[in-house]
Design a protein around this nucleic acid. Structure first.
Lengths: 167, 167
DNA sequence: ATGAGTGCAAAGTGTTTGCAACTAT
DNA sequence: ATAGTTGCAAACACTTTGCACTCAT
């Protein structure tokens, strides 16, 4: 039931009107999905859409909420399964923030969108840090300890600018 | 059978005899506990002991196991509560490693033992990185973004030396 | 048409909480 | 003595799984 038969095909033409350039990340994600021989289903579209609609870092639970709001028929478990698939294919990246919930975001397809994650222990927000901020440190660490840091998968802990100022 | 009728009390006077010179970290932890007006109880000693006995980074669940092995009467919930207290007092540090389980370790009391955490995505091991490795990056990040990185609370993701060599 | 993908509900993890009993101070 | 701690068991949040059905291909 519920209708909304076409996820975002021809039907929602006016909802789409100012989306001529639908996130390249979203397009890329769908293409990558197909390229891997995976089926493109409505739940999967919904998950990718939720991820593409924001530049935020969403927790799995938050994604569940967003998807359920848009497509009530989509079940929690399916969202989790979809996220697993997307992560496995490298379409989505997830980082574990201190606090229990892991956050997900689309990997930037055009490249250049890459960034590091910084988690504020006061407000919980995950903010972005220039991707090259740790380059020097990474080089030094590998040199000294042999550990090959993958900065983009790392989450830096600390206090964000906003919270730092309030104190 | 088994008994052990008195969970903890006067009974273990001799069980205590060879515990005069424990880890300075352990002593420091207990002292800090007292200094904060917290009571020093057997469960708390057991948790601190488990942490002090190893330089490893222990998951909460692993600590539960260790403590339960040494003091069967101590309940899981108490271990979690104790860890919370210790973290809150800054006696113990915990980092969330990607993969769900957070790892705990005593903060080095004499100072100088401080280190950063690096989590290998291949073997799962948490290794230590020199504490100052991110100093320059931290300064630059704060300068550029305002984010005040707390390097010691951060977990770097990547591949450890051993795993890197195998590939 | 046919199997990958889904919804459902139930079972897992890992962690927290309300309460009466107990013990460190 | 007495308030802080504990044990217990149940609740909790988050995630995964078995199964029959459906839909993308």
């Amino acid at each position: 039931m519920a209708s909304v038969p076409s996820p975002y095909g021809a039907a929602d033409s006016h909802a789409d009107r100012h989306r001529e350039a639908p996130d390249s990340a979203q397009v890329g994600a769908l293409a990558a999905l197909r390229a891997h021989g995976e089926r493109v289903t409505e739940p999967r579209r919904a998950v990718i859409e939720a991820l593409a609609r924001t530049h935020e870092h969403l927790s799995a639970d938050r994604i569940v909420t967003l998807v359920e709001a848009a497509r009530p028929a989509v079940h929690r478990a399916t969202v989790y399964r979809t996220l697993d698939v997307l992560v496995e294919l490298g379409i989505v990246s997830h980082v574990h923030a201190p606090g229990g919930a892991s956050v997900y975001h689309l990997v930037a397809f055009p490249a250049g969108q890459a960034h590091l994650h910084a988690h504020c222990r006061l407000c919980g927000a995950v903010s972005d840090i220039p991707v090259d901020a740790l380059d020097a440190a990474a080089a030094r660490i590998e040199d000294e300890t042999g550990f090959r840091m993958e900065a983009q998968q790392s989450t830096l802990a600390g206090v964000c600018a906003a919270c730092a100022e309030k104190r």
